[in-house]
Design a protein around this nucleic acid. Sequence first.
DNA 1: TCGTCAATTATTTTT
DNA 2: TAATTGACGA
Length: 859
Amino acid sequence: MKLDLKPLLNPEQYEAAMHHQGPLLILAGAGSGKTRVITHRIAHLHVNLGVPLERILAVTFTNKAAGEMQERVRHLLHGLGAGERGSPTLSTFHALCARFLRMYAEQAGLDPRFSIVDDDDHLALLKRAIVSLEIEATPEVVRGASNAIDDAKNRGLDPDQLEEEAIGARAEEDARIYRAYQLELRRNQSLDFGDLILEAVRLLRSHPAVRRQTQRRWVYLMVDEFQDTNPVQYELLRLLCGEERNLVVVGDDDQAIYRWRGATVRNILDFEADFPEARIVKLERNYRSTQMILDASGAVVAPITQRREKTLWTEQRGGERVQIFTGHNSREEATWVARGIQRAAMRGIDYDQCAVFYRTNAQSRQIEEQFRAQGLPYQIVGGVSFYARSEIKDLLAYLKVALNPANSLDLRRIINVPRRGIGDKSLDRLDALAASLGPDATLYEAIGLIAQATLDDGTFKGKQLEAFRDLYQLLEDLRRDILAGVPPSVIAAAVIDRTGFVAWLEQTEPQSAEDRKQNLWELVAAMQDFEREAEAQGQPATLVDFLERSALVQQNDTVHGDEPEARRLQARPITLMTIHAAKGLEFDAVWVVGVEEGLIPLLRERDRDAPDRMDKLDEERRLLYVAMTRARKQLALTNAKVRRLYGKEQLAWPSSFLGDLPPQTLEVSRESAERDLLWGKPPAQRSGGDFDELSQLPADDDPGVDPNPHRRRPTLQAIQERRTTLHAALQAAAPAPTLRRQARPRAAEEPPAAAALQTDLFALRRPTPAPPPEPEDDTPRVVYDDDDLAAAPPLRRGARQRPEAPEDEDLVGRTASHTREGFGTITAVAGDGDMASVTVFFPSSGRELTIKKRYLKIY
DNA sequence: TCGTCAATTATTTTT
DNA sequence: TAATTGACGA
């Protein structure tokens, strides 16, 4: 069956999707259907041109994007009845490189069981490296070296090359630290994120045979979010596509928001320099937003000089104006957002089509508080990653060490967790012992010597010796299990059981033990999911693969409020996330909070004089652009005059970027504390955007600011300090203020009186009044008087309810625990209900027992 | 060696 | 605000 793309795509999309060979740059504006182009091109190559799917490689940055593309390609091909013949490789840069390096571990000079270190491990290792050079590991040194190393890896430099280009003592020191750090990594048989790409590049460069093999394997290359590539990633792409130069890149320089991670817009701006024969297609037709939203957001990036000119257009003429709201404080801002969402819901926009974006995670707290107070269901995307939680890292550390005994970093982590009486002193002696065994000896080997009593000098005895023996025995058992192919979930459960992890949690952290236990079981459940998935694909579920996934998947788990689980699952929640996390998503209605100077753009004092400050400012513009272009129909930008952050009140003023928005696209909310569209400066002066502008003054009626900009040009910090002091003085001088009741938003018709503004400010310094009582019923509370709100939208049943009480035939393969026998895997079931006879294999004892179901805990 | 309590301090974005 | 670090006593 032939696939005719013509009726499916617009002319530009069609041109891009029909592209056959050679380099192509697709400049895809926000919402212009780039994923559609990529998936249709894959289908076209396969169905019309007979390209085997295995020859196609598409690289993305996030697992989310890779997964989505996978799904869409599968769906598209399935619809054409062409889905059964293999599948293209759709992967992230990092996952691709990790697999590649394990495959060619020998040529790359690596142990195929190498561990991948996350950011925390990276810092720990870095500190050790710094100390090993007898340099004091102050936060500045660590941060500086970390940045230098990251930057070097992003540019593809090794320690020697970094040293060569180093100017000054500081840079030379960084290079030396880089060298020592690499040594630490090597000793631990570990790679960090940067190494994954860099080592892959080195391997391809130095091994022509591997390179040829790889180039033959993938003939058609596509890269999504090309604007986010850094120089090494770019180099990797060039090596992958080889002489054929058969490379299609899709990107939007206006959405480049990862410069700080080494991404360089240059890659997209100068693509033709490297590929002079490249075709370029611009996708400017937007299928997502109203013209109003496009006009407003376009104005934010328009002042950027280094950019590919694009003008988005849509057939959705008109649309609602962008709402602008200024709250007296950040709590009021949150209240207004909550109310706005309830209004949107009245107009038929589901909660799960509403999103709130903020610049920093810390801002989510206040939004949460309001949502909780008003009974709005929400989910937070991002935040502390599941895999960054200490109990999860502990458990995984056991598995990582068992797999890769050279991983001393993780061994250190667990050597005394749970407490087994091996303290700092013992660890020092263990280090000394390892050092005496030779330069390449590992901690694990040293422990082995002690445990097997090969060492008989009496350094360790009694309880300590016992502790070492237990630990060693445990790890050896795990190693054996891994080799024997015992499923990861069973191994993990055995660790929890044999270390007494749960009891330790309950004893040391009684308040959070419940949560942490939940997390542990969630990890075991994640492993089981993984095992089922692998089984479905007919592949073995190996621990290496699971660990790799856990290291590379930034699980966007949802951190929920303290609402009861059942209630939370009932409604499709509103999404709260950082702007970065929002890239690639879209919602009917979007609220961007904290559109303030200092937050958007986020500026810190030390950036003031940075040579690249203009670039940073441009990136902040793009960030706001990304946030705004997520909205389909409705968009609001909010800020506050006083912001509570880190437990402190700080005065704030509207972002200078707001001054670039065309007034005819805006509408200031009637409830706003600031009614004026001219945020304290005439429009003529407003556009450029420079750091000096920051020290210029905000609205005249803001307290605490010298109204004469010529008198001095204080630093950002000085301004804030001065404002805060004056603010405090004002407060001290005032008669006892009346406290305003909290969290009862005023009716929409009643804008805050001028007098209320003052008391409002004062109220901030007082202890917060008791929070409003939790609503008892399940419906969202109606918080203001509008009649039309009385009919609040019904909460819908959520889609992702976890299956409870599994059907009996589902039990086989699951993990079960028994009070005496510990953890095991279910191998058979007879009968049903609580009295069913369940046969369980317990790896710790090697026994298989049949036990009544009611005596088992099943996970 | 371990647990408690006080002090300190850092606050961006993430594969 | 919250999370981490450091000192101290058991």
